[in-house]
Simulated assay, not measured.
Amino acid sequence: MRLKHSAIAVVLTAMTALGTALTSTTAAHATPGRHATTFAHGPSRPAVPIVEARGPGVFPHSVDYDPDSRKFVVGSLAHSTISSVGQDGTVRTLVDDKDLVSVQAVRVDSKRNRILATNVDYGLADRSAPATRFRVAGVASYDTDSGRRLWYADLSKVAGDGKQHLVSDVTIAADGTAYAVDELTPTIFRIDRDGRASVLLRDDLLAGKLDIPDFLNDVGMSAVAWMPGNILVVAMADGSLVRVPVDHPEQAAKVRLTTDLKTITAGIRVLPDGSIAAISSGLLSGQAAVVQRVRPGPHWKSATVTVTDTVADPVSSAVTAGPRGTTYALSGGLAALLAGGPNDGFTLRPVNVR
């Protein structure tokens, strides 16, 4: 995988093209203050707010929702921090660990009062260095209340292959075992509740096949979710899904989809009925980000895909649960980060997944 500076111009052109539409959409729904009501989830439900987060320079790539605090949790690609986000847009730092370089994914485990985060290095963070670019690969666990680190799993050491790595996502099974996926190698890692890590699966089925001209090459696994039945559902950036039975990972196979997910598949959320909401970023195309619902057949061997919503900001990179049964999409300012520019916050926008 390679980042190329010529992509910045493409990204900014796409963002400029969408700017007028995005401004008009926001203005049409806005009310005084930092967040605005947008739409209702069903005829009897109250409208839910757009959250305009006041977190300059955070540049989050992922988000999760903590039902206990009723706040969102985000990681920072730039500042190596993990923060909570109130529904009023207030951002508060929870974790500032000197061993983190760039936080790609965050996952709240409210059952065990912990937050898991993946550690990467695109070469864009405050703590980035030429020697560590795409060489940092880890998952860390933190106490939700105190921010104290519980353990750190160095996955580059576990892989032992000397290759570049980018741990794009992590999911948590019912027993507390975590599973992390690598976007640059076809590797899924298993991490027990005490932070002991091992390789669950290496398989060319998981290898990156998506090339984005002048931006990213060989983009592979972008997101992962654990499902009842002890099955991992892995979203590939190219719009395909792979099912991995945890007890028999060698039986990994593609999920038969009615239609592929829109590329670039950026993030997924497990819905209460066991289906998945997926968001696909239009980072380079400049097209609106697309939200799709994936309804599985038996044992996730097949699934039906339907489009449920779009987000005017094409650079939307994650989808998560929200308060009162809502679902939110994250727009974290990735285009500005790639261009070396500042931002004054980020947006969490409610989306329809029905």
Rank of each mutant, 00 (worst) to 15 (best):
M15G: 04
T16W: 08
G19L: 13
T20S: 13
A21Y: 09
S24V: 07
A28S: 13
A30W: 09
P32L: 14
P32S: 12
T38H: 11
F39E: 07
A40K: 05
H41F: 08
P46C: 04
P46V: 06
R54E: 15
G55E: 06
P56K: 08
G57K: 06
G57N: 01
V58C: 04
S69R: 14
A78W: 10
I82G: 01
I82E: 04
D96P: 05
V101T: 14
V103G: 00
S110I: 05
K111Y: 08
R114W: 01
A117H: 04
T132A: 06
T132L: 13
R133L: 01
V139G: 02
A140F: 05
K157V: 14
G160S: 08
G162Q: 10
K163S: 13
V167A: 06
V170Q: 05
I172K: 08
A174G: 06
V181A: 06
F189E: 10
R190T: 15
R190N: 13
I191F: 03
D194V: 12
R196I: 14
A197T: 11
S198K: 10
V199L: 08
A207M: 07
D214S: 15
F215P: 01
M221Y: 09
W226T: 06
I231Y: 06
L232M: 04
V234F: 03
A235T: 07
A237Y: 07
S240H: 11
V242I: 12
R243W: 00
E250C: 05
A252Q: 01
T258G: 03
T258I: 03
D260C: 07
K262N: 12
I264W: 09
G267H: 01
V270Y: 00
S285K: 01
Q292P: 01
R293T: 06
R295D: 02
V307H: 06
T310G: 09
P314Q: 02
P314E: 03
S317A: 14
P323A: 13
R324I: 01
Y328T: 08
D344K: 15
G345T: 12
F346R: 10
T347A: 15
L348F: 09
R354I: 11
